[in-house]
Write a protein that binds this DNA or RNA. Structure first.
Lengths: 211, 211
DNA sequence: TGATTTTTGTACCGCATCGAACAAATATAG
DNA sequence: CTATATTTGTTCGATGCGGTACAAAAATCA
């Protein structure tokens, strides 16, 4: 380890003796997320993040480690958010087509959650670029996609068993198409396509997927 | 214009009086493409490009303008390549499923064309990140996607007329799904998924799309 | 109160970045 | 051969970058 100072893990408030921190780590992470979301990893400087969070660079460094570690933390939290959104949508006992639309509506709620123009998907907008030269980001990307595929596949399998899909339907193939639809929505959102149009596309795609 | 020197358009060899250029513009553009493809726009420096092309920065600047203009040129050429690949695949008079697989095989031939690991799609890997804050890139992205949608839709419409698809099939919806499948392949390639596995996914998806 | 501990904020370092200035080099035109 | 036009290659400058050193600030413990 490089640091030999007496301190606990980064980000954990020891709640002990020292000067209290003047920022909320959760809020700071959300601000950092927004900043990376807009500019990407390479396109965002630590000064940008410092300005967005209101923190200064040494505090950032002490709290979250270097820029790369901070990005990985933000990426991991985004995945958790995305997984949770999908699980919620699929948890309710809705007809297949409605359940799928819930998933896409949940995704778009995230893609359009910022203040300015639609940011699209954080992963598609920032991680995909870095994945090629960064093994940790690449592995996170691959794992996240597999999780989405698996979530859809489970739902399609159930749908087939319950007669919502034809017997000869291929749940794995349909799952990849469902994930693909998320990806294209994410890309199109970043390309400036309006939300209503994306919802239209999603709706048509759901019709096709559900046969 | 900023420059007032006596010269013709950038990149055009006047074939006139001066010292001849010691590089081939086409080759240089290809090298620049590879460099941006790997590192993204923000993640690639002019020095990286100078090293890759063997040119020095003033020559780069004189030939292609600044980094942004060079990127736009590279992006535009990539689109032309992608469009051509798709047109070729759909031009031959093949059955629908085979034609679609030709498109995806053509795309993967591009995504895996580099020396090292798969770079995926140049657009998905580099333009999507910048699109949010760069109107020219965003517009190019939106226009390119529309072109792909339209290309697929035309083919699906013909397929429906010729009885390869059911009468009630929706060519526009199928086209979006076909484009979506390209997008997910591009993303997965960058995530390190091997080519054989991607081809499997594409094949299954084609089955679903063709009904 | 005084010692201790932790965070803050300023200032800074070394390096990379984009872009430009400028002279040397190399061609053609007359 | 001389003048002109264009490209090359070195060098430079101003700024931005990620990351850090260090002292002041603000809390708790004794």
């Amino acid at each position: 380890m490089v640091q030999k100072t007496t301190k606990t893990e980064p980000g954990r408030s020891a709640r002990g003796r020292g000067r209290p921190r003047s920022y909320d780590p959760e809020t700071a992470l959300r601000s950092a997320t927004e900043t990376f979301w807009r500019g990407g990893f390479s396109g965002t400087s630590l000064d940008d993040i410092a300005a967005a969070t209101g923190m200064n660079k040494p505090s950032l460094y002490a709290a979250f480690g270097d820029k790369h570690a901070l990005y990985l933390e933000v990426l991991s939290r985004y995945w958790q958010l995305a997984f949770a959104s999908m699980r919620e949508a699929l948890a309710e006992d809705l007809p297949l087509d409605e359940a799928l639309m819930r998933v896409y509506d949940g995704a778009m709620a995230i893609y359009f959650s910022g203040a300015g123009p639609a940011q699209g998907c954080f992963v598609v907008g920032t991680a995909v670029t870095e994945a090629l030269e960064d093994r940790e980001i690449r592995d996170s990307l691959a794992a996240g996609i597999r999780t989405f595929d698996a979530g859809f596949e489970t739902r399609f399998r159930r749908a087939r068993e319950q007669g919502e899909l034809k017997k000869e339907a291929d749940p794995a193939a349909l799952a990849v198409l469902a994930t693909a639809m998320m990806h294209t929505i994410a890309i199109r959102a970043r390309a400036g396509i309006p939300r209503a149009e994306l919802r239209e596309l999603a709706s048509k795609a759901v019709e096709v997927i559900c046969g």
